[in-house]
Amino acid sequence: MTPELESAYSGRKLASRFATGASSVAVVLALLPLVAVFAYVVSRGARAISIPFFVEPIGERGAGMANAIVGTIQLVFLASAMGIPLGIMAGLYLAEYKATRLARAVRFSADVLAGVPSILVGVVVYAVVVVWMKQFSAFAGAAALAIVMLPLVARTTDELARAVPDSLREAALALGASRWRTALFVVLRTAAPGIRSGCLLAVARVCGETAPLLFTAYNNRFYNDSLLDPTSTLQVQIFTYTMTPNDDWHAQAWAAALVLVAIVIVLGVVARRLLDEKVPG
């Protein structure tokens, strides 16, 4: 190697080392908030978590959050039951009629809806559902969460269904399958692993949503008698307890936060697993 080349080469090596170092620092800085939040929630929450937390309803000293846990589960299930089928069907429509004017308009609206602050969704559901039913209810809360889920599920389905090769659609059509059977039994089935994981991520997202519930499911010190009653949730209970000057309630809020974070992480890990599950062929 000539001396000129040698010096140019060592200069490049230096630049490369600098760039690698800088991006490593950036990664650490980016992860720092996540690790800090997680570590703090675990350390504060783990101290407060106990058996009564899971079995006793909300109340004074020694009470738990059983009714809030049940409420969160109710709401998330109900919201999923409304949001997931609707979102998948809408997404499938977007993918199968991707070039039509309606599909473009709906795709654009879904992207906008995904960016709307979730508290606005809560206000709208309050104005439409809560005012109409004249009370806060689990149903109204679930409706708000379903609206938050809808664009996420629809756009995920849209993207994944469009990635299904046209050769499979043609195969089905050439077998005399109608358009909707092709979409449902070939396109949806082929894209299913990805869509499942997208749905789980949408569920994880609404598990933590608090703002849309403040004016919809509201809160309840007891178990709700029906889905038409106000309902307590972990999210809103964290908010409520944090606003009090009561140390015991603060501890309860940390425990609730830990449970929520754990739920979100488990859903995220399962979603990742499903996504990695390779479709044969």
Binding site: S167, L168, A171, A172, A174, T190, V279, P280
Partner: peptide
């Protein structure tokens, strides 16, 4: 009137 395509396209799932 059935059809067989250029690239084999069995349903992968």
């Amino acid at each position: 009137v059935g059809m067989v395509f250029q690239k084999p396209n069995p349903f992968p799932t």
